[in-house]
């Protein structure tokens, strides 16, 4: 199935006229780590993504904004192929990660997911101890030595700015933590396997302002090491944290560019309307 996808993708690319391509405003990206090319996705009969093309730069924060239901999460979940699990999903187009297609049938999907981590909208710690939550990804990869794991757990929790709060109760259940702590634990869990890209799907939507601020701060700290893609429908958040912003509407990419430009001087009317709060 993935084979035909790539074929149709190239065919589509060739057939696409310059006029069509210019429908979305896109910037020139120098060092893309991910290249989304004419990506369309159907849930059964319903088309949720419509020929989206954009490039995501390395070690920067890219934000997807747009009204709810416009396909932000769907797009994000394509990047680590989490949509594969949903019955009736059909994908056309391609996503290139380090010059290979992530839809390549020879690709080891679990290895891909190790390199592209994800933090979900609702914090989803495993029903295990704090320690085991962070160590989970490593154990999956076969790292089971206590000394190595101790080191990784400590490093990850420190990176997620959680270490000082939990270092005395690593053996307690992760479900006993506060919402903000749980979400930071999920970030720690994601970075414990040292991915290159971290996908964050509305990571702060269930958090209070203080916890939100801590996560945003954390994202800035992580920028030196990781490429981050964040979905949010909170425009202030997008303007605060991201370097680039993509505006999606009804499954289409409307405008993509440096965050200041999108927020201060958008090229498209729809973008402006959304940003100024006229709809969405």
């Amino acid at each position: 199935m993935a084979d035909t996808q790539t074929v149709t993708a190239t065919a589509a690319t060739a057939a696409a006229t310059a006029a069509e391509r210019d429908r979305a405003v896109r910037p020139q990206i120098d060092n893309p780590i991910l290249r989304i090319e004419d990506l369309s996705l159907w849930y059964g009969e319903k088309k949720a993504l419509n020929e989206i093309s954009l490039e995501i730069p390395e070690k920067q924060i890219t934000a997807f904004i747009g009204p709810s239901g416009c396909g932000k999460s769907t797009l994000l979940r394509c990047i680590n192929r989490l949509n594969d699990l949903i019955d009736g999903v059909r994908i056309e187009g391609d996503i290139r990660f380090e010059d290979g297609s992530i839809f390549d049938p020879r690709l080891d999907i679990n290895a891909l997911r190790k390199r592209i981590g994800m933090v979900f909208q609702k914090s989803n710690p495993f029903p295990k101890s704090i320690y085991e939550n962070v160590a989970y990804g490593c154990r999956i990869q076969g790292i089971n030595k206590k000394r190595d794991l101790d080191e990784i757990v400590e490093k990850s929790l420190k990176s997620a700015a959680l270490w000082d709060e939990v270092k005395d109760r690593l053996d307690e259940s992760a479900l006993g933590m506060s919402g903000g702590q749980q979400q930071r634990l999920c970030i720690a869990r994601a970075i414990a396997v040292e991915p290159e890209v971290i996908l964050l799907d509305e990571p702060c939507s269930a958090l209070d302002p203080i916890a939100t601020a801590r996560i945003e701060e954390l994202m800035q700290d992580l920028k030196t090491q990781y490429t981050q893609v964040i979905v949010t429908h909170n425009m202030q958040q997008a303007s605060r944290v991201s370097d680039l912003t993509a505006f999606l509407y009804l499954g289409k990419l409307i405008e993509y560019g440096p965050t200041e430009k999108i927020f201060i001087n958008p090229m498209k009317k729809q973008t402006e309307d959304y940003i100024t709060g006229r709809f969405g």
Partner: peptide, 20 residues
């Protein structure tokens, strides 16, 4: 969402079922 959390860390379906 908990299962997806495990899969997103690179676990296979079997590992997810067994460990989570």
């Amino acid at each position: 969402i908990v299962r997806e959390g495990s899969l997103a860390l690179g676990a296979t379906k079997f590992e997810t079922i067994r460990r989570v």
